[in-house]
Design a protein around this nucleic acid. Structure first.
Lengths: 207, 207
DNA sequence: GCCGCTATTGTTCAAGCGTATAATAACAGG
DNA sequence: CCTGTTATTATACGCTTGAACAATAGCGGC
């Protein structure tokens, strides 16, 4: 019986490949369909190797969750330009691909459904949520200041909670039923809604 | 070896008990922790009985999902009174217990994570979502008409999408991190946000 | 060019899974 | 009180799972 040939992956690369394969399996087959064997097949290795890189399957899943959070928040946290542009980009990024697609929400939901079961996942979630909301809150404070609008901390907090909710909710709607909306419709609705909430144009008015 | 005594449950009751036990297990242990044996223990019966009531475990899970959707939408769809009161109650119901709690979102997320895997669950979800949004859209149309505000179908559609997103998003925030908000804070934020979106008071102004 | 290290393979194991089936306890009707 | 029906239990089966382990192939240092 011939042992199949194999090549050694460069430092750290295998780890990343395994995490990516884990996410592929979770999004395609669900959490319970993401078995060690299935993940190994997807990554093009054998099951035994998983245990060489991760102490347990649970640990690998937790790391995979961190990767999901990062992929969902990285781009939006790096917006640049003047406050108005940053706010607009923040909203648009979160409601268009690749952040808003069915794979993303499958992964997000799979992990959210486990936060009650696994305290480590709960901690990862809370940290990601607060980071996201605080980014938004600073964005809003900068924007309102630039517009010469009064914006005490309490007002900014309430607006950040509301707009965070709005964006998250529209993100869910779009991910789950993208075909029910016209191209760009969700982004347009989000923009005009945020304008209504802030009582100010954010530069999206039609000519 | 003594066979344990048992009693026959009234017609249909067992079915309901099994579905409830299924939901308990999913919320406590996750989808993969909700095994036939665990569910049977929770329901106080033996595993074999499950197959007497359901053709397969998958079928039972699908029925359990229907029960979740119903529990999340039933109360809000039965609001009564004048349009303003109905709109206010609709919002408040969705953002307070028992609709908004950590068990609800665990269940919701567990099923959402499977809509890509199981077409039957996807169908159940879509139906529930559209029903919910249409209820809200009619609520808005009635409310705006009562206020003497112009409200063509397209405007109502956009408002329903936005407010649905807002309520869903705040629901998620509240379910996952209820301790980060003050008592009634999310409802208050939702009310003032909806007022801003509609450009009208909905009777929540402070004296 | 050999040697040691380790990344990778292939195999095995006990536990738990969903399902199938036979035995039996409870109940309804005559 | 007996009898037929069926809801329920108990047990078994084949399969998959996460994990453990020994064997080995590839690679860096000498």
């Amino acid at each position: 019986m011939n042992r199949r040939s194999f090549h050694r992956a460069p430092e750290g690369e295998r780890r990343q490949e395994l995490i990516e394969a884990t996410l592929d399996c979770i999004s395609e087959f669900g959490l319970k369909g993401a078995t060690v064997r299935q993940i190994a097949i997807r990554a093009g290795v054998t099951a035994g190797l998983v245990r060489h890189y991760f102490e347990s399957k649970d640990q690998m899943v937790a790391e995979a969750y961190r990767a999901v959070i990062a992929s969902l928040t990285d781009k939006a946290s790096k917006v640049e330009g003047d406050p108005e542009t940053r706010l607009r980009d923040f909203i648009a990024i979160n409601l268009t691909e690749p952040v808003a697609d069915s794979r993303s929400i499958s992964l997000w939901a799979a992990f959210i459904s486990q936060v009650r079961v696994d305290p480590e996942l709960a901690e990862i979630h809370r940290e990601g949520y607060l980071t996201f909301r605080n980014t938004l809150q600073e964005l809003l404070a900068d924007f309102l200041a630039a517009k010469g609008k009064p914006a005490d901390a309490e007002t900014c907090r309430a607006l950040a909670i509301a707009i965070n909710g709005l964006v998250d909710g529209l993100w869910v709607e779009g991910c789950l039923a993208g075909d029910l909306f016209r191209e760009g419709e969700l982004v347009a609705i989000a923009m005009s809604s945020v304008e209504a909430l802030l009582g100010t144009s954010i530069g999206t008015a039609k000519p």
